[in-house]
Simulated assay, not measured.
Amino acid sequence: MIQQIYPSPSHEFSYELNKDFQFAAAHYVPHEAAGKCQNIHGHTYFANITIAGDQLDESGFLVNFKTIKELLHDRFDHGILNEDELFSDKDETRFPTTEVVARIMYEVIQEYLNTTINKPQCLQVFLRETPTSYVIYRPKSGGLL
């Protein structure tokens, strides 16, 4: 795993959890402005998920690291992002660009967190597509509450 210091969002929560992982996935961007990226190609993505909250769950976790891996890594690793139901070749807000992938990762995590008793919040998704290119997605205040 790449050792990285990520930009950190400011917050007032007592606990902050960060989960790093990588996944390999292929995709294409179905728009003429994407140039060569219109062709199917792959990346080894590096992700960092930042979750914060004030209350731990009944097992003493803000959220179990394993759950984050199951929700994101296990879903996207060694797949073609365009084939996942969360992405679309017709709706530009769902093309699997790095920006959209980061936002969708946030949506998947926050949807799960909303079902928990302690209700932590996903504050940011950092997604590196290549060694020189990354995106940070931070929801506007409130996110998917």
Score class of each variant (00 low, 15 high):
E85H: 14
E32K: 15
K19A: 07
D89I: 14
I49H: 07
T93L: 14
V125H: 01
F46L: 13
L71D: 01
A34P: 01
L72I: 12
G142I: 04
G142V: 02
Q38K: 15
D84P: 09
D91P: 13
I51D: 06
H43W: 10
I136L: 09
I117Q: 14
F61M: 04
T67Q: 14
R128Y: 00
I5R: 05
Y15C: 04
S141G: 12
A33M: 15
E129W: 07
D57M: 10
S59P: 02
E92F: 15
L145G: 12
R94I: 03
E83M: 09
Q3L: 13
T130D: 04
N118L: 05
G42L: 07
T132C: 01
L145F: 13
Q121N: 15
A47E: 03
F61W: 08
E58C: 01
F23P: 05
K90G: 08
T50S: 14
S133H: 15
Y6H: 15
V101E: 00
R75Y: 13
L81N: 04
P96D: 11
E70K: 10
S141H: 13
R138Q: 13
P96Y: 12
R94D: 01
S88K: 05
L127Q: 00
T115E: 10
A33L: 15
V108N: 02
Q4V: 10
P7I: 06
F126T: 00
V29P: 00
P131K: 03
N64T: 02
D84R: 00
I2L: 11
E83D: 13
I136K: 01
K19P: 00
L86H: 13
E12N: 11
G60Y: 11
P131H: 07
D74F: 12
A25H: 05
D57H: 03
Q4D: 10
Q124N: 05
I5F: 08
S88M: 06
Q3E: 11
Y112L: 10
I49L: 12
P9A: 10
F46A: 07
F61S: 01
F21K: 04
L56W: 02
D77M: 06
F23N: 06
A25C: 04
K140N: 09
R138P: 02
N82K: 04
A33C: 15
T50H: 09
L127Y: 02
P96T: 10
P131W: 02
S10H: 04
D74M: 11
S59H: 13
I104T: 10
T93F: 12
V125N: 06
E58T: 08
D77E: 10
P9E: 14
D84Q: 07
V135H: 14
V125E: 04
E12W: 05
I5T: 11
E107F: 03
K90V: 08
P139C: 11
V125I: 14
V108H: 03
Q121A: 15
F21N: 05
P120L: 05
I136Y: 04
F23R: 12
